[in-house]
Design a protein around this nucleic acid. Sequence first.
DNA 1: CAGCATCCGGGTGGATACTG
DNA 2: CAGTATCCACCCGGATGCTG
Lengths: 141, 141
Amino acid sequence: MLETHTDVPASRSPEQAASSPQLSLQSTGCRNVQPVLSRVGDKWSVLIVMILSQGPRRFNELKRQIDGISQRMLTLTLRGLERDGLVTRTVEASVPPKVTYALTELGESLREPVEALGHWAMAHIACIRAAQEGFDARASQ
Amino acid sequence: MLETHTDVPASRSPEQAASSPQLSLQSTGCRNVQPVLSRVGDKWSVLIVMILSQGPRRFNELKRQIDGISQRMLTLTLRGLERDGLVTRTVEASVPPKVTYALTELGESLREPVEALGHWAMAHIACIRAAQEGFDARASQ
DNA sequence: CAGCATCCGGGTGGATACTG
DNA sequence: CAGTATCCACCCGGATGCTG
């Protein structure tokens, strides 16, 4: 569980902090946040994390369960997740080889904010689609 | 990415109507969630949303405030956000023209889950970096 | 001021073939 | 089974130049 939720009380940045140019919002927070956002926005990472949250999986189990992924992207994505410390890779030296992937605690803790985003998406998808259709209709005419 | 194209309706089977305990991101939810995740993972969208959450901004205000963005990407990103109904674009027909961008309620509501993700990122960035360095060290030797 | 048009380099990701 | 290696199409995104 993630009770280390250092709840930052949303220190509203007072717009233009005069002296220091607009490096406040970018370099301070976003340099750290952006890589994480990229991982979440990645085509396959979140899906893999969600599947692994149900339990460890072997390589081809994942491949079968994720419709449309190429083995190249599965490998690459798993390597990336492993590198970030979100997933562990366990090799059992047998014939045939058996490799098991599982979520780390870090990976597990990522599920909460990601699911929050997922819930937001589910709750507002109709609203978004409507906006898109309106926009497209306006643009085409 | 910015092309959150309106996906096919894809009539849902009514099997898991209201009994799904967990938000299944693989089957039903994935198609709805993924475009949103792409937007969040987008290089500039979240940054723009965060800035606009402090109040409406004009085009060049945003451009000045967002270090490193090209005006092409600013335009494209704002169009995408507008299309998704997250941002409004208001043109004041004057000379010189004045265009103001502001968050919609939908855009404002996105801030919460995104900030949750941001907090997660800030809280675990050290952990992630350590994992990455360990991984890289292991890989290079 | 607020864009759009164009070019183009680099990275993402799919398809395919091969290995331990 | 679980990858690696290679080729390649696409398109993201920066730079530049031009409009109203």
